[in-house]
Structure formats: structure tokens, C-alpha cells
Design a protein around this nucleic acid. Structure first.
Length: 491
RNA sequence: CGGGGUGUAGCGCAGUUGGUAGCGCGCUACGUUCGGGACGUAGAGGCCGGAAGUUCGAGUCUUCUCACCCCGACCA
């Protein structure tokens, strides 16, 4: 087969870029750092959206929409929040263009300077809490459980398709609660929703945990996260859920009267996942033949490719396939019958392999005679001949198997690449020679974490939930430690 | 913002000591093919990133400029 891209072993980054391009997911745009998500890539995002949205609704949330622009002054209200985002904000300073008086084209009209500059949202806590102030007066107004699907802008210096772009799509949940306990519970609930989604729909195993103070979201008291391990041994943060305490309530003066008629500050959470998950999807399952999609997220779950010489054969296959198409659709399986006469069957095989379609059915004259079809699965590349009559049941089972197999394969990879280090030498050796998750002791100070990052580029990905306690010594300082934390080099 | 590259057909590239632009893929038409990216024939498509200069003559030499990519610093 003619390969149009390089293998993971040759150059992992290039392989990733090639997959994105060849599978027609996205491309770079004329705007530096901003991508165009192409229809096939967007279809995957839409499936993710639909699934997550239902999960949010099922946990009592509602959707709303807040402005893309945020007055600059809002950002200075919460000190650590501004510190976290100040360096990557796009700023709107003017509201009008005019024809260039000294030549062609248009220029910014200096007369049209905004009195207060607007920030293009890097996240929406500030504008939302400024709004919630007006929505919340009494304990009866709580909780507020809002989510928004939106784009955000973070002016990154170096970008990569899906993994880090200047503009990206995401959802951000913002909730307001009467008590600390309720807010903490919400933060945990949504992290579990994310873990459930990523593991069961995306077939990506994750480690759930809490971030160290250094990695915490600006303005949060605690940041929970799910961390996934990519095939090159680097970690990728797949979702975060923040317990914001009363920080934003205090910054925006959001108070309610409780049942005792006493004023209380509101407790907050926020949580989000982004199109970055598509990057995680690619780097978890795909192989040197192209994209591999778990059936639950594949825009096309089954493709049927006819093989024929004459128009009569083509028609005979189309007739044969018609009832099957009907049955598959009734069974809620997204199927495409690619009867396009301008492409050859071999070309189609490669095309759908590249695009990660989980199941391919090929039907030719020989199959017609025998009342059979050739069924190929993308995850293992295995082919088998199946009687046409039992095809629906076979496909249904196969899709389940593929979904399960992808998760198990990824879980095995994660297990095989999760190790312990007890000394500094061992730690560095693992990072360099056996990249993956490394559990090691840490003395708990931000200074040590910074130093480790400086020396190795590895960061604490999280302190896992239900982490076993174990006495030990910090791998860098030798100071006593009560538990191992999860280190890795990360995206 | 440092360090290194690249700009020539839709995409990927070649272009010698300066002489008026070519290859592969793709695209269009026709024919033969069709069980893992078919082949043949005939076509269409580029003021060589931009500006100025040197020259009889610039894709090629000089200066300036713009854009993008890679490696760092920064970050999801």
C-alpha cells in the first residue's frame, strides 16, 4: 500500500500532523495559530458534543450563552486568575475601520478607540460571575447549573492542530452553590462525568486526581483532572473540573441570604473539555495506517464498498445492499454505502482505513454468488467472510467488540507504561528511556516541583484519588513524603 | 523575543556560470481496466512572496520587506 505519511517510530509529531491532514480532520488557516476544522473532524466533535450535552442535562445542567468579549477591568478582580491568563489575551481596542487616506486598503480608525478595552474570552468566569451577581439574591436562587458551548482564545506562541491552537472550541460549566460541600460534590461529579465519557465513548483510559498547587487553575482552590497517556509516553490533560471556593463570589460580590436571613458568599465550580480531546483520540488509538476511531464516536461506523466490473454487477450489488442499509439504519448504526463510480474499490479501502471507519464491508460478484460479504475491522485490520443473512447481528457485535478492544488495548498500554521511581537517577532514566507515567515521592513543596520541571521537563500530572499512603523520600530533596504522585512529560 | 530554515502550477519539489520556467502527484477528456491507492493518449494550469537596485537581460546577483515552518522561552 502506498503510504502518504510517516510512521510513529520515524517521527511521532509528523505522524500526528499527517493523520490530521490525511484523515481530513483539520488544516491550518490563513490566520496564524488558528485552525479550520473540516467537516469530518467537526462531525467527530459533534458526536462528542451530543454525548456530553446529554450527560450534562442528565445531571441537571442547562445551556446558556455569555459574550465573547469581557471588559478588561473584570480581569483584575481576581488576582490569581489574571495572573494565569494575562500573558495570552487578545485585546479589542477599536470598533471601526476606514479607507486608508494615504493609499489603498483600510486602516483602523483612530477616532474609534474604545473607552474600555475588551478582552476576547480565554475563559468566562469573570463575565459569568458578573452576571450571576444579578441572578442570585436568595438561597432559593441556588444552585445555578449552567453550561455553555463556546469558542475561546488564548494567544499561544506555538500551536499544534487540536492540541494547542489560538482559538479552540469547548464547553465550560459554571455553577453556583449555597454550601462548600455542595460545590465540592459538583466538582467531583463533573470530573466523573468526564472520566465516564472519555473512557466509555472515546475508549481512552484516564487517571483521575487532583492537581498540585503549581498546576492549579488561576482562581481555583482545587483543580481535579483526568490524565491520559499518549502512545509516545507523554501525558495529556483530557479534562478539568475546578472547585473555585468563594473567590469569584468575593471578587464580584455575589451574595445570598440564607434561611436565617444572613448574607453568605456563593460557592462556585467550573469545568471544561475542549477540541483538544480530538488530539487525545488520535494519539491514543491511531496507527501507522491512519486514524482509528472507536465506534461510539465514528461519524461513519460502517462503510459498504461494492466491487464490480459491469454496470449490471454494480446494480445487482446495490439491490442486494439496500435491505441491509435499511436494517443497519434501523439499528441506529451510521452506515455509508459508497457507490461512487469515479473511485476504484482499492482506493476506497485505503481512504476509509485512513479515516478510521471501524467496519468495512466489501461485496463483489463472488460474494453475491455465495450470499456472503467480506467484513474488515479497522482496529486489528482483520478480514473475515460472513454470511449475508446474519450480517446485522454480526456487525452489532463487532462494533461492541471494537469499542471494547480499543479501550483494553489503551488500558494495557497505560499499565505497561506506568512505573515507579525511587531515586533521582531512576526517575530521569525512566523519563528519557521509558517515557510514560512515573509514580515517585515528592516533598510537597512548589519549589521542588519547579526544580523537577526545570531539570527534567516532567510535571506532576496529578495526585490520584484514593492514592495509597506510603512513607518514602522525595526523589529530589530526600525529604520525607507520605505518598507517591504521578509525574510525566506532558502536552 | 532569541537560533535555524523555507517562499517557483491546487499540493510536493527541481531549476547549473544570469538568456525569458520544468518534474511528480492532483485536475479535465477519451479509451482500456476494476477483490487493497490502475494504465495509456491528449489537454488545462505559474507576470517564480512583495518592493527597490545592478544588468541589454533577474526565478538566479545586492539591499530592504512580508509571510509561514522547525528548535527554545511560554502554555491546555
Amino acid at each position: 500500500m502506498a503510504k502518504n505519511f510517516c510512521t510513529r517510530a520515524e517521527n511521532y509529531s509528523q505522524w500526528y500532523n499527517d493523520i490530521v491532514k490525511q484523515a481530513d480532520l483539520a488544516e491550518n488557516s490563513s490566520v496564524r495559530g488558528c485552525m479550520v476544522i473540516k467537516p469530518y473532524g467537526y462531525a467527530i466533535w459533534e458526536k462528542m458534543q451530543a454525548t456530553l450535552d446529554k450527560m450534562f442535562k442528565d445531571t441537571g445542567h442547562v445551556n446558556a450563552y455569555f459574550p465573547i468579549f469581557i471588559p478588561k477591568s473584570f480581569f483584575s478582580r481576581e488576582a490569581s486568575h489574571v495572573k494565569g491568563f494575562a500573558k495570552e489575551c487578545a485585546v479589542v481596542t477599536h470598533y471601526r475601520l476606514k479607507n486608508n487616506p494615504e493609499g489603498t486598503g483600510v486602516v483602523v480608525d483612530p477616532e474609534a478607540k474604545l473607552e474600555e478595552e475588551l478582552i476576547v474570552r480565554p475563559t468566562s468566569e469573570t463575565i459569568i460571575w458578573d452576571t450571576y451577581k444579578n441572578w442570585i439574591h436568595s438561597y432559593r436562587d441556588l444552585p445555578i447549573l449552567c453550561n455553555q458551548w463556546a469558542n475561546v482564545v488564548r494567544w499561544e506562541m506555538r500551536t499544534r492542530l487540536f492540541l494547542r491552537t489560538a482559538e479552540f472550541l469547548w464547553q465550560e460549566g459554571h455553577t453556583a452553590h449555597a454550601t462548600r460541600e455542595e460545590a465540592v460534590e459538583e466538582t467531583e461529579r463533573m470530573l466523573h462525568v468526564y472520566a465516564d465519557f472519555v473512557e466509555n465513548f472515546m475508549a481512552i483510559p484516564v487517571v483521575k486526581g487532583v492537581k498540585s498547587p503549581n498546576e492549579r487553575f488561576g482562581g481555583a482552590l482545587d483543580t481535579y483532572c483526568i490524565e491520559a497517556l499518549m502512545q509516545d509516553g507523554k501525558a495529556l490533560q483530557a479534562g478539568t473540573s475546578h472547585f473555585l471556593g468563594q473567590n469569584f463570589a468575593k471578587a464580584f460580590d455575589v451574595k445570598y441570604l440564607d434561611k436565617e436571613n444572613k448574607e453568605q458568599y456563593v460557592w462556585a465550580t467550573s469545568w471544561g473539555v475542549s477540541t483538544r480531546l480530538i488530539g487525545a483520540l488520535i494519539m491514543t488509538h491511531s496507527d501507522d495506517n491512519g486514524l482509528v476511531l472507536p465506534p461510539n464516536l465514528a461519524p461513519i461506523q460502517v462503510v459498504i464498498v461494492p466491487i464490480y466490473k459491469s454496470e449490471e454487477q454494480r446494480q445487482a450489488i446495490a439491490d442486494k445492499v439496500q435491505p441491509l442499509l435499511q436494517k443497519l439504519k434501523e439499528a441506529n448504526i451510521s452506515v455509508k454505502f459508497d457507490n461512487d463510480d469515479t473511485k476504484r474499490s482499492g482506493w476506497k479501502f485505503n481512504e476509509y482505513e485512513l479515516k478510521g471507519v471501524p467496519v468495512r464491508i466489501a461485496i463483489g460478484p463472488r460474494d453475491l454468488e455465495n450470499n456472503e460479504a467480506e467484513v474488515a475491522r479497522r482496529d486489528t485490520l482483520q478480514k473475515e467472510t460472513v454470511s449475508f443473512d446474519g450480517l446485522l447481528e454480526h456487525i452489532q457485535q463487532l462494533l461492541k467488540d471494537i469499542q471494547k478492544n480499543l479501550f483494553e488495548k489503551a488500558l494495557n498500554f497505560q499499565k505497561e507504561n506506568t512505573r515507579k521511581a525511587d531515586t533521582w537517577e531512576e526517575f530521569v532514566d525512566l523519563l528519557d528511556n521509558k517515557p510514560g507515567f512515573v509514580y515517585a515521592h515528592w516533598d510537597g513543596t512548589p519549589e521542588t516541583e519547579d526544580k523537577i520541571k526545570e531539570l527534567t521537563k516532567a510535571t506532576i500530572r496529578c495526585i490520584p484519588f484514593n492514592n495509597p499512603l506510603e512513607d518514602g523520600k522525595c526523589i529530589l530533596t530526600g525529604k520525607p513524603s507520605k505518598q507517591r504522585v504521578l509525574f510525566a512529560r506532558a502536552y
